[in-house]
Design a protein around this nucleic acid. Sequence first.
DNA 1: TTGCGTATTCTATTTATGTCGAATATCCTC
DNA 2: GAGGATATTCGACATAAATAGAATACGCAA
Lengths: 139, 139
Amino acid sequence: MTKSKKAGKGRRAKLPEELTEAEWAIMKVVWEQEPCTAGTVQETLADTRAWAYSTVKTTMDRMAEKGFLAIEKIRNLQLFRARISEVDAKRAELRKTLKRAFDGALTPMMQFLIEHEGLSAEDASHLRELVERATRKKP
Amino acid sequence: MTKSKKAGKGRRAKLPEELTEAEWAIMKVVWEQEPCTAGTVQETLADTRAWAYSTVKTTMDRMAEKGFLAIEKIRNLQLFRARISEVDAKRAELRKTLKRAFDGALTPMMQFLIEHEGLSAEDASHLRELVERATRKKP
DNA sequence: TTGCGTATTCTATTTATGTCGAATATCCTC
DNA sequence: GAGGATATTCGACATAAATAGAATACGCAA
């Protein structure tokens, strides 16, 4: 039988779309090394974050509950893998900023970036390139 | 006697640099109408957020503690005004995203935006314009 | 089969945010 | 100077995030 975690009514609990700070750190490792264990993640992050194993594990368990990670059990081992792509996560993150700080308007945000975050010459030419390509794609 | 809230040692608590969701909503109003009262903010936001006056007030008081807002007292009135500029807030917000999702690399973020958030033809030409101008400024 | 060494589960603490109601203070008008 | 309309202060409660120790389970090797 369908063992639904939360409630009956087909109503799916709104799962968070965005990652917290700690979750980002963890996801990055998972994306790179999946499938991997909590231990691996903890070790990989050791130099950056002084997190105890249990901290990482607890967080990852919660992320699994939220739908960000999937757990595969092998013997007494839990292998985690991502259930959201890096692209989706990035998109969500950017959208949040876009909404919050720029009322959802993309161009003003780009403009802000260009004007306030010094572009190097290379950056600029690279950008020009990208814009070119993007426009050429749809005439 | 000096009734210091926190601690003795001139050690200033690291004040947060970033705004939360609710704080963004409030700041936007303040930036537009400052100086203004909590009541004004509450009313202005009424159609968007069903917040009780005290919710807004409490949040704004906390924002003042954090250094985001300044309070000027006139009679029994409190006038709030921003202590961080919109530009700074935007910058902080973008930097956070930049760090989190793109390891601090600007160009990849721009690239992502260009490639994943459909640019209209106008957007593109506008962008080209901006990039042009930005490069011309520093040869 | 007895342990050793990991891995897992469970629970707990702290801090921040979101959210408000109730009690209190203050001002202006009559 | 009394009353009522506003504002302010305070404390409270819920949830989520960050963090981690303790207790427990499990698999493998001697």
